[in-house]
Simulated assay, not measured.
Amino acid sequence: MSPRTAEAAAVEQAHQAFYDAVERSDLEALEGLVLTGPLAETVSVVHPGWPVLRGRREVMRSYALIMANTEYIQFFLTDVEVAVDGDTALVTCTENILTGGPAEEDGSAGSLVGGLVVATNVFRRTSGGWRLWVHHGSPVMAEGVEEGDDGDDGESI
C-alpha cells in the first residue's frame, strides 16, 4: 500500500468512526474524534437546517442534544471520496439516513423516516491520528435526474 493510499485509508477509518459514534450515541467516543488543542475554537458544524456552530464546546453540545433526542439513527454512506493534502483531509459523501421514533405502546418498532444529506467533513492530522475539524451536512431537497432523462420536461422557467 502506498503512503498516500495508507493516509486515505486512515482518514476513511476516522470518518467511519465518527458516524459509528453518532449511531451508537457514544458521546465519549465522539469527544475523542473531534479536534482539540490550539484549533479547538475553529471546530465547526452545520447540521441540516441549523446555523453554523463554532467552537468545540458548542459542537459537542449540539451532538449531545441530538443524541439525547434521537431514539434511533443509522447512516448508510455512499459516494465517499477522500482527498489528503499534508495534514488536512477532505471527505465528501452522501448520508442515507434512517431515523426512528420511540417504540409503540404494543412494543413494536416506532415509525422510521429516511432522508438524504450530502456532507463535507474536514479532518486534521494530529499526533493522536486524524481528528474531525469541520462537518457540514446539507439536506438533498431535489430528486436526481433519472438515467436516460435529459431533465427537459418541456416546461420553461
Rank of each mutant, 00 (worst) to 15 (best):
L33N: 03
V34C: 05
F75T: 04
D79N: 15
S25C: 06
H136E: 14
D85I: 02
S127G: 15
A142W: 10
V52K: 11
L112C: 09
A83L: 12
E23F: 00
E146W: 11
A14K: 05
W130V: 09
E147T: 11
R54I: 08
V11S: 01
H135R: 09
V118E: 02
D152I: 10
Q74E: 14
T42C: 12
L33M: 05
V22Y: 01
G107R: 12
P3C: 02
T99P: 00
A64P: 05
S2Y: 06
M67Q: 10
G37V: 11
E7N: 06
H47T: 01
S44W: 00
G137D: 06
T92I: 11
D85N: 04
T36A: 11
G32S: 10
T36C: 06
T42S: 15
N96E: 07
T99G: 06
L33A: 04
Q13E: 13
V118R: 15
T42N: 11
I97T: 09
R24P: 03
A109Y: 07
G49R: 10
V82S: 03
H136M: 02
S127D: 14
L30W: 01
A109H: 08
L65G: 10
L35D: 01
A89D: 03
T120G: 04
G86K: 10
V34L: 06
G49Q: 05
G144T: 13
F75G: 04
Q16T: 10
A14V: 11
E28Y: 01
N69L: 08
V117I: 14
A29I: 15
D20A: 13
L98N: 00
T88E: 12
W130F: 02
F75D: 02
G86W: 12
R24G: 08
R61P: 00
S111D: 12
G107W: 09
P48I: 08
T120C: 08
I73A: 12
E146Q: 15
T70E: 12
R124A: 10
G101Y: 09
V22S: 01
S156K: 07
V46R: 00
G137E: 02
M1R: 14
D152L: 15
L77K: 02
D85Q: 13
D149Q: 07
L98Q: 06
H15L: 12
V82C: 07
T42D: 13
F123P: 01
S111K: 12
Q16Y: 00
L98C: 14
G151F: 06
E71T: 09
E23H: 00
W133N: 00
T42Q: 13
A142G: 07
E31Y: 12
D150H: 04
D153M: 09
D150T: 12
L132Y: 08
Y19W: 14
T126R: 12
D85K: 00
P38L: 01
A14S: 15
A103H: 07
A64M: 04
F75C: 05
V46A: 02
D26R: 05
T42W: 05
